[in-house]
Write a protein that binds this DNA or RNA. Structure first.
Length: 152
DNA sequence: GCCAACGTTGGC
DNA sequence: GCCAACGTTGGC
């Protein structure tokens, strides 16, 4: 089993959307960056994922979700009505990947980016805390995963 | 709203 | 293949 982190704007899809979905899964789609997509292709069912809230008032890790359905062609890329439509993608030759995720646990309080940065000694090479980090899907080392769990 | 970081596009 | 221009991300 692997560990990951995904970013989302909570108004788009945050931890409360997963709470509302209960045992139901939510499609994680719209990723349009190759490095992030390649990581999504590596995801397997039951991989554990930190859900990070970005571009909002309370920035940080809000809880844990897990992979319910491994990577498949993101339907939005074929839909001209979708903001994620990609005219260069075709059903025969899809370009982008979606996975389905389900709630594991909403944390009692958010672990803020400031807290993570204050723990930089424990989070060496954790790209999330780098200035200007834009990657929206990234792997998390088991040692980092364990440390972040201790902050919740 | 600003702006740094950085990925993508397209002319050459 | 280079690189300037442009667009997006995301913290502040």
């Amino acid at each position: 089993m692997k560990y990951w982190l995904v970013k989302s704007e909570p108004e788009e899809c945050g931890i409360d959307d997963f709470v509302a979905a209960g045992a139901g899964s939510i499609r994680w789609d719209g990723v349009r960056n190759y490095q992030a997509r390649n990581f999504m292709r590596e995801m397997a069912v039951r991989d554990q994922v930190l859900l990070y809230h970005s571009s909002c008032k309370h920035i940080g890790i809000a809880g844990v979700i897990e992979v319910a359905v491994a990577g498949y062609a993101d339907p939005a890329q074929f839909d001209p009505e979708s903001p994620y439509f990609d005219p260069k993608a075709s059903v025969d030759n899809p370009r982008w990947t979606a996975v389905d995720m389900v709630l594991v646990e909403k944390w009692p309080r958010l672990v803020g980016l400031d807290t993570l940065r204050a723990s930089a000694d424990h989070l060496k090479d954790f790209k999330l805390i780098d200035k200007g980090a834009r990657l929206s899907v990234m792997p998390v080392l088991p040692v980092h995963w364990a440390f972040i769990q201790s902050l919740r």
